[in-house]
Nucleic acid binder design. Structure first.
Lengths: 211, 211
DNA sequence: CGATACACTGACCGGACGTTCAGCGCGGTG
DNA sequence: CACCGCGCTGAACGTCCGGTCAGTGTATCG
């Protein structure tokens, strides 16, 4: 069945509102972003938002899911086919830096939801909907690490902790890049991360003596 | 001059209120922590808080500074005297994990202030007071890294980026530890971080072939 | 023991924000 | 053209919260 005119309008509204929400949240922060301002940013009246989302929580939740779905698609694409661990690691990091670079505004929403706020009921709800998304991201990377360990490419360590360390560490670099006027080329930061994580930063004894 | 009785009472109130603030913020999150609840937690009336802090912002700011001052003291202590880079890195990481383990409740306050919220005026104020504290932490570690690079113990990389990567990566592990019922011993996680950062995770060709 | 000072209290105020809903205008229909 | 349906609007409502201040209890002093 072709999309009816109503569907098209509806989709357009939903998308405008979600994009506005991301922009306002990235400007003011999660707590200070008001429905009024989101509505203005989207070019609709406050009441209109409630025709498409039950309440503020649902708007935030759906918006987050839509946006993070995009990130997951990118990561999946980066991991298609198989290569050496190093290639895959580089692909993942490149995809990540690229995504946040193109979606700078999504970053703050992402960061705000890392740790749930509000009453314990709200916290539980946020946890149910957002935590799995973070977990999925961590688990995906942990899976790659585990695979590489089994293949003998990586020494045995707790894959989950390593994944956390890597994701959050690279997130810090993304954050820094976003606040810089002229960040270095993406590849440079990817190389920093990949080479550090693969080979470490210490100059081995043999190399030092040969120098 | 000895402390007058008023000073003692005053200090006690300030401390109670700050501790209450940390507990409430860690329970509800920054935005949802109300002055009323902080007052109840401290066992005083709401108005009393305003005898010791100009407004909510000042309370949060001062509380944050008091608590992070403690962290900085620990880090300084960990770096007293001099040792190899590896020893210093291990000391810093141990101090960090230890601090957050003993001050679990401070963690959320710390996390909430990472990224300023509210109107742009509020954001500027928060940036002026809190960002330098984060910067100081990063710069301190970056300094150690730089020193090790100059000494030829560490290969030359951007020290600031490395420091960010390390601090945020280890923060992720702290966060994970805090949410676990029975986290592994601190030393284990410290070793994971230190060995990863020093030697990387890849199994070198020579080691693999000798296996 | 009264008088004075002052830390403390908590009801109250003003404003902001999420949510609602009566009504408006516009495109479609007979 | 008159009527209708409906997507949309934004004023109004209830709630919540930071901040205020007149009043209260208590310690101190003459």
């Amino acid at each position: 069945m072709a999309k009816s005119k109503e569907d098209v309008v509806s989709e357009f509204r939903v998308q405008s509102i979600q994009e506005a929400a991301i922009r306002v949240i990235s400007r003011k922060g999660m707590a200070a972003a008001t429905m009024q301002e989101i509505a203005e940013e989207a070019g609709v009246a406050k009441g209109t938002i409630y025709l498409y989302f039950r309440d503020r929580e649902e708007l935030v939740e759906k918006t987050f899911e839509t946006a993070i779905g995009e990130l997951h698609k990118r990561l999946d694409a980066a991991l298609e086919g198989d290569g050496t661990f190093e290639e895959r690691l580089r692909a993942v990091m490149t995809a990540q830096l690229g995504f946040f670079n193109e979606n700078r505004e999504f970053f703050r929403l992402y960061h705000s939801l890392r740790m749930p706020e509000g009453t314990s009921a709200q916290q539980r709800r946020q946890k149910r909907t957002c935590q799995p998304q973070f977990r999925a991201r961590v688990d995906r990377l942990a899976g790659i690490l585990k695979q590489a360990m089994d293949a003998g490419e990586v020494r045995p360590l707790d894959p989950k902790r390593l994944a956390l360390f890597l994701i959050e560490g690279s997130t810090a670099i993304v954050l820094e890049r976003l606040s810089e006027d002229a960040p270095p080329p993406e590849t440079e930061d990817v190389e920093l991360i990949v080479s550090t994580i693969l080979a470490g930063i210490a100059i081995s004894k043999s190399k030092r003596s040969s120098h």
